[in-house]
Design a protein around this nucleic acid. Structure first.
Lengths: 196, 196
DNA sequence: TTTACATTTTGAACACTGTTCAATATATTT
DNA sequence: AAATATATTGAACAGTGTTCAAAATGTAAA
């Protein structure tokens, strides 16, 4: 029924919102079935009527966070000069977003997906985010004959791997040891990669 | 006393060996206080007479794995021509080691350190491994005037970030989707970074 | 309105996790 | 052999995810 569908989606939304709030404020380690249900105003058992397990619920947040990150980056890079300059700004803002919400980084890149089957698209959702954010400016550079399509492909990959690694090392291993040092390393890395 | 010290180190060793075996065979998720103690032939409570908590014990394994990785890489790269060629071989072997033991990668780069205080050197132990493996060949390239010291520093950092990110994405997000594709990406990335 | 059925919500229970602590067992010394 | 010191241990507690039968609620029919 339609009414039933609407209500189901509503309750699902309560759980998702609770999970997102918890993840952003307390981090991934505090995301538990009982904590989520408390925030949503339901019993922990109710959660299992709407999601097959807690990982399923947690990974449903990826879509929303992806959009949030997109907006975060867009609002602070639209006025920047297209091309290399904006690419740098986009990548820095992208990293900044995860620095601000380490729990979201954990969810995106560290948390293991439970079942490998149908969740391939969640992985794609995550790994394609940076590429999507940069797409227009890579195209711009290619159109301007600053880069070949082949070169752009290599740089895209290197920047995805590098930013992921740098964030992993900084958030999980405090390397570099301060935010200033991290930021300096990030800019150096991006500059070195964008340099033709 | 000396006798006491020897016995204490021996029992500690039993727990560390058990943890290492478990980590390599079953992965980090199976490393629990009771599983470790079972393998070591003690009660789970005994563990707390030798280590302040389970994370302390788990991170003590880093030192041994570091040595193991070092040997793994050394034995398959000593005969390679020094310079860029050997650098590539070293970095590939380094990645290969973690592909073989995903649990060790989790321990090195994903697992959060419990207390931030005295464990800074464990982080350093981890983040300096690749640099140490490559040190001789970077020096070789600098001596041969193939690189300036400054350029080498940039490349070192980029390769550390890139390998960490590529391994994170492949092991946690199946990106790229197959080992063949992963290997191809890894070689492309390394080649592009080593290219002056 | 009351009865009957369908759906949603829920807490108890189970198997796990890490950790603490008092009791037990072992080793050492007197 | 008795007294003391040390090592080992299981019970207990608070937390985790998950299942399931019972209770509460909503809906339809009599």
């Amino acid at each position: 029924m339609n009414k039933k569908e609407i209500q189901e989606q509503r309750v699902k939304g309560y759980f998702i919102t609770a999970t997102k709030d918890l993840l952003k404020s307390e981090g991934l380690k505090s995301v538990s079935v009982r904590n989520i249900a408390d925030r949503a105003g339901y019993s922990f058992a109710t959660l299992y009527n709407y999601f097959k397990d807690v990982k399923d619920l947690v990974f449903l947040c990826v879509k929303d966070f992806r959009e949030e990150c997109r907006e975060y980056v867009d609002t602070r890079t639209t006025t920047v000069t297209p091309g290399n300059k904006r690419l740098k700004a986009i990548i820095l803002a992208y990293m900044e977003y995860f620095i601000q919400y380490p729990g979201i980084f954990d969810l995106f890149f560290a948390e293991k997906l439970s079942d490998i089957s149908g969740k391939g698209d969640t992985s794609t959702l995550i790994t394609s985010l940076l590429e999507e954010l940069c797409a227009a400016d890579w195209d711009y550079c290619i159109d301007m004959r600053m880069l070949t399509s082949r070169e752009a492909g290599l740089k895209k990959a290197a920047l995805l791997y590098g930013t992921t690694g740098l964030l992993t090392l900084y958030l999980n291993r405090r390397h570099p040891g301060s935010y200033d040092a991290f930021f300096k390393q990030a800019t150096h890395f991006i500059d070195s990669q964008l340099k033709s």
